[in-house]
Design a protein around this nucleic acid. Structure first.
Lengths: 147, 147
DNA sequence: ATAAAATAGTTTCAATACTTAATCATTAAT
DNA sequence: ATTAATGATTAAGTATTGAAACTATTTTAT
């Protein structure tokens, strides 16, 4: 087994020990925050997040989140009824639905994000500047894996 | 704003750009593999994984996965019916149910893990040894955040 | 120019998974 | 010995999901 291969396997093992529980913890935190203040699920929150990042159609959302179009369509329904999103048929191609955040949607996102950020910051308070820089750098490396 | 604070926020931003989509991609891969070969969901797979890691009771599983005990109990039902897990009432305290993997369960885990590992390795093939070491190190740093 | 095909989204429906509340079995406490 | 606590399960209701069928719109092919 080559050195590179061993390093790959080590990175994978560490990844599996770390990311699933960490992600679960974060999800739980968001769910608690979002539910307490806005009665919204993590999945709904993520849809709003994607829309703000510029993913503005049902199909794009479905692809980004790896779930079916109907599931997205129905989730969007709820968000529209809650007054957090608006559906607008594109003037260029009327088949497309352009999703945009309402003021309330933007406000919700700001609030939950801010609180999650603060919560994560607390968790990071014991880390050194080197460790923080390393995290940021590794995240860009991991993003390369997605391409 | 202090340097440390700015580094924390940068790390958090990168984390959010990276981990949710990466994790989603991995989940999708596992779902495809596990469903194709064993007709099992990602959540069921994760329960098996936790059991192998030594989490051997319903309550521990519920705490680890942040979902309710009944949900775990029902999921375990399915896994027992599939012949992947066994329930044994503890001899020390008969209220406890000790979960153990059957040979089929171990085999399933080995297979899906091996394939996921290979898939991740492929994705990592473009990374340098330095980057791989950085990933492993950062994962241990992130784990500190969970405590 | 028009019919057929493709695309974006929605609705319906059945299956699955989750949660809360109530319950059973067992152990601990007074 | 009775009561309280703990671990797990069952029951009932809700919510989320995907497959299939459908509408509306646009593109392609003839």
């Amino acid at each position: 087994m080559s050195v590179t291969e061993r390093l790959q396997l080590q990175a994978i093992d560490r990844f599996w020990e770390t990311i699933p529980p960490l992600w679960g913890t974060i999800r739980t935190h968001i769910r608690a925050e979002a539910a307490r203040k806005f009665d919204i699920s993590v999945e709904q929150f993520h849809i709003l997040r994607h829309v703000r990042r510029g993913i503005g159609s049902i199909s794009e959302l479905a692809a980004a989140k790896n779930i079916s179009r109907p599931a997205i369509s129905q989730a969007v329904d709820v968000l529209v009824k809650k007054g957090l999103l608006t559906r607008i048929h594109s003037s260029q191609d009327r088949r497309f639905v352009e999703l945009t955040l309402t003021d309330a949607g933007n406000n919700l996102l700001d609030t939950v994000f801010q609180e999650t950020r603060e919560w994560m910051q607390e968790r990071m308070s014991s880390l050194t500047t080197d460790e923080l820089q390393a995290i940021a750098k590794v995240m860009t490396v991991l993003k390369k894996m997605l391409d």
